[in-house]
């Protein structure tokens, strides 16, 4: 079965996805009978399109072109096309949305996703903003058209948290909390292990490509809050991003860290919601060093799901490009049903 995929957004994650498809396409086809054909990749200035699907070598090549330059890649580059023209040209079955998250307007991801659904394409997202802001609209639109929307890459992108939550069909979830932002966890780990201030830890994180040049979405808790909204919506809770109490990590000082360590504790940027009270938060918390979350360091994430049956803990990778790309590919296979 051939699946025609359009990748919208071609930064680290989009490129990792293209390279992954090149290298693991055959494996996926053998195991699940699904032949993933990337028919177009789109960045902010244009696209590279090949209606019959790029070969593996072509995907590896296009993944190496400079940022915002796919439209100059020969012979498939096209500059300045509208999404409508792109759809007319390549007619994708699956739209992969990996543009940057914008928690004010949701754009460009939100319009892209709604357009994709209007054109009959299933949608796979790594961009959280459209779901965090318009979850019901997106799902409603998909349902009305018999289409699927998958977004495993949006929360703990390198680990199957979304799938785990969705599988708890008969459980009553009481509370979900954890460490959902790899950047702030990396920064806090550096602060505790190297006893450095937040500014210095942030600079190191930026140097290592872990933090963005503008880290405010992570530091101020927007990213973790968006993830909470998505998790809550999966459980049928009407949580809005504006209703989440956010405390920025920026107020945590080296002195706070030292004081916590003296008390055999650590500081973590914890996000969670209580399904019963509707309360939701993202805030720095001082945790005893024998708690599970206190041991989750670096780029790892963790989720604790408390239910009426028992509690579940998932510790795993957050959203590095390679891990996120795997979640995107898994979602595509899942949409198409696969053989298993």
């Amino acid at each position: 079965m051939d699946v025609r995929v359009l990748v919208v957004g071609f930064g680290h994650v989009g490129r990792a996805f293209a390279r992954l498809t090149a290298l693991k396409g055959s494996l996926v086809e053998r195991r699940f009978g699904v032949r993933v054909k990337i028919v177009g990749v789109v960045d902010s200035r244009g696209a590279a399109l090949k209606p019959e699907g790029f070969s593996g070598a072509e995907l590896l090549k296009v993944s190496e072109v400079p940022r915002s330059s796919v439209c100059f890649s020969e012979p498939y580059g096209v500059c300045g096309l509208s999404l409508k023209s792109l759809y007319d040209s390549v007619q994708p079955d699956v739209h992969v949305e990996v543009t940057p998250s914008n928690y004010v307007s949701g754009e460009p991801g939100l319009s892209n996703v709604m357009f994709a659904l209007s054109r009959g394409a299933n949608v796979v997202l790594a961009n959280k903003a459209p779901l965090a802001l318009k979850f019901d609209d997106i799902m409603g639109s998909a349902r009305a058209r018999g289409l699927k929307v998958k977004f495993r890459a949006t929360v703990m992108g390198g680990s199957p948290l979304i799938d785990t939550v969705l599988s708890l069909r008969s459980h009553e979830v009481k509370k979900v909390y954890g460490i959902f932002n790899a950047t702030t966890n990396y920064i806090l780990t550096l602060m505790h292990e190297s006893l450095i201030g937040l500014d210095e830890a942030l600079k190191t994180a930026q140097a290592m490509g872990v933090a963005e040049a503008d880290p405010s979405l992570d530091i101020d808790g927007w990213d973790a809050a968006a993830k909470l909204v998505i998790l809550a919506r999966l459980l049928g809770l009407k949580l809005n991003i504006s209703g989440i109490a956010r405390e920025s990590l920026s107020k945590v000082t080296l002195r706070d860290v030292v004081e916590a360590l003296k008390r055999n504790s650590v500081i973590k940027h914890v996000a969670g919601f209580d399904a019963l009270s509707g309360e939701a938060w993202v805030k720095p918390e001082t945790l005893s060093s024998d708690s599970v979350l206190s041991k989750v360091n670096g780029l790892l994430n963790a989720a604790v799901i408390e239910t009426d049956v028992c509690d579940y803990i998932l510790i795993g990778k957050g959203g590095g490009p390679v891990e996120t790309a795997h979640s995107l590919l898994d979602d595509i296979v899942s949409i198409t049903g696969g053989l298993i």
Binding site: L20, L23, G56, A57, L60, K61, S63, E64
Partner: peptide, 10 residues
Amino acid sequence: VKVLNVNALD
């Protein structure tokens, strides 16, 4: 020459 441009990090 037809090449596979392989990123060592992958």
